[in-house]
Design a protein around this nucleic acid. Structure first.
Lengths: 211, 211
DNA sequence: TGATTTTTGTACCGTATCGCACGAAATTAG
DNA sequence: CTAATTTCGTGCGATACGGTACAAAAATCA
């Protein structure tokens, strides 16, 4: 899988580019773009600054790479969860459990979603950051909506359900978990909220049914 | 109302402290804490740096003052809206319209909620910022919950409604509007989403009723 | 072995940053 | 008019920042 590129010409690298990108992402994630210095990044990635430059371009480009990496990572796992084809309640709870795993790392402080907590702040003046964030959310909403449409097809949700809006609400709850985790709410409290919210999402379907 | 403080002793100020605080807040709002320099703040507030220091303390203290100011401002208006005692749907839509007014300023780029977009990023390493944000959200959720409890009392929502969770969902939608406004969604799209989401919140009540 | 290629690591440059010292300016109190 | 008080505004100092130049190091190729 991880094919070592067939012996390259010059001096070999002493760092792992993917690991370095994850370390950089984590640093940006906790401090934001501007408050993270190249010295910090250099220390965390164990690459000196010229190597950072060679590998990723300037600080802004490294930041974009970190955002894109996060988006790919999380998007792939969410796609996998939805593909498992569990019952609707179970799929939703797996998604909320998964994002809570991300927002509350085992080691380190609660951090929320990288894009919501950090990326969106940059989005106003950084068109690339804005595009990456918008793309991530579009894919995210789309995943929820697709699952809800399937639920209508299988009878888990009644016909006439407004799947697009329900997907927006499901995404809203993810944003809520992100925001609240970073400002001190406990994981247990947020998990309980997610459960109750899922109850309501399913009940909403019931209401529509009788309409 | 605006009582001029009875002639103080020394040289009079050339700036309006409240106006200056709003200008500082707007600058932080668009760029974040670290990317906003004292030179920027000095220019925007038309106070030179030593005056800023004298009036607000260091940059971090000024930032906290800006957050607290925002929290007071928005909190007061939301309290006012809820106090109007309009029908539930109307109250909710007034709230969503009001926050969209904030998130989409008439002049300038979409910016989302100051606390969600900027404050939460600081919350991880800045205990004061975290406290201000947590207090703001607690008050916000409480306002929604109180309104939903009243709705149960008046029959707008059926008995047995889980008002705390419903308040969390209503707040989630506000977070959604904040996040999405800043990454390029149009105000019209978000307003339409809010309307559909309110439909669902009210329908959820209906479902519970039949339980 | 010697030329070539790629990465490493030090050292540095120009600039921006935060915070404050200090004297001038503008007002009131007596 | 003089003293006291408060703010203003210039200017600066120490540090931190992003980014790069340059030569040494470590590998492959012929």
């Amino acid at each position: 899988m991880v094919q070592k590129r067939s012996a390259r010409r010059g001096r070999p690298r002493t760092y792992d580019p993917d690991r370095a990108l994850r370390e950089a992402r984590d640093l940006f994630w906790s401090r934001g773009f501007a408050a993270t210095s190249l010295d910090d990044l250099s220390a965390a990635t164990r690459m000196n600054r010229p190597s950072l430059y060679g590998a990723f371009g300037d600080k802004r480009a490294l930041y974009h790479a970190a955002m894109a990496h996060y988006r790919r990572d999380v998007g792939a796992e969410l796609t996998r969860i939805v593909a498992e084809e569990a019952p609707l309640r179970e799929t939703l709870m797996r998604i909320y459990r998964y994002v809570l795993d991300i927002y509350f790392p085992e080691d380190g402080q609660p951090r929320g979603c990288f894009i919501v907590s950090i990326g969106v702040a940059e989005a106003q003046d950084d068109a690339d950051a804005r595009r990456i964030a918008a793309g991530a959310f579009e894919a995210f909403d789309g995943l929820f909506e697709k699952r809800f449409r399937d639920a209508v097809r299988t009878g888990e949700l009644p016909g006439g359900t407004d799947c697009a809006t329900l997907a927006g609400i499901a995404s809203s709850i993810v944003h809520f978990l992100s925001v609240r985790s970073r400002i001190g709410e406990s994981r247990d409290t947020l998990y309980a909220f997610a459960q109750s919210a899922v109850d309501m999402i399913l009940a909403t379907g019931q209401a529509r049914a009788g309409k």
